[in-house]
């Protein structure tokens, strides 16, 4: 067992353990903390796979952003100091059903990947000619420059033949701008109404 497998096992355990304790915990803030452990471990897994940019984004957006908003929401809305959440049996069954369905989708996807490249062996071609599915050492790491290039519409990695993501990128940024203006507008009107009343 090499050190990467050891680290992978550690962070995979933390990810799953965090996820399970999110479900088991009844205190909202402890749930949020378990979620932090789970999401941060996922970003560690990304770093382990040399996906630096995705790992850092995972930390910034989910752990540093979303969770903080979530805890803020809990702090501002909870009526008691340490809010408890109790689920009814019906909710439990529903969640378990959805969870099992989701797990089966994941399992199906993982098993449908040809990890041992059996198809290539059966076809009698050398394994080198068939690109490996899943994690690939050669294509890992230092993805920032290709990513940045593709966002301004350049794809040097595909000899410039594939289209970049300039249009989706612009649409998303305009969408975010609309959301920001909307949020500011809502915040302002609310204050005005309360001032009049």
């Amino acid at each position: 067992m090499n050190i990467e497998q050891l680290l992978f096992a550690l962070f995979a355990l933390l990810t799953c353990g965090g996820a399970i304790s999110v479900v088991i915990c009844q205190n909202v803030v402890r749930m949020a903390f378990s979620l932090i452990i789970s999401l941060a471990s996922i970003s560690a897994l990304f770093f382990l796979l040399s996906a630096d940019f995705v790992g850092a984004t995972q930390l910034m957006v989910y752990v540093g952003g979303t969770i903080v908003l979530l805890i803020f929401g809990v702090m501002l809305t909870s009526s008691s100091a340490l809010l408890q959440i109790r689920t009814s049996p019906a909710e439990g069954f529903l969640a378990a059903g959805i969870g099992v369905l989701f797990l089966s989708v994941f399992s199906f996807t993982v098993w449908s990947v040809d990890w041992d490249r059996n198809e290539a062996k059966l076809a009698g071609v050398t394994a080198v000619d068939v690109p490996e599915q899943g994690y690939n050492e050669a294509s890992s790491g230092n993805t920032v420059r290709p990513l940045a290039m593709s966002f301004i519409g350049l794809r040097p990695d595909k000899d410039g033949k594939a289209p970049g993501y300039l249009l989706p990128f612009e649409i998303v940024s305009v969408h975010l701008l609309v959301v920001l203006i909307g949020a500011a507008y809502l915040a302002r009107t609310k204050r005005r109404v309360s001032a009049e009343s």
Partner: peptide
Amino acid sequence: SLDVGLFALFAMLSLEVI
């Protein structure tokens, strides 16, 4: 030494608030 050095640094630093 990462190509995303500053981004990763700020991502780590933003965890302090938690």
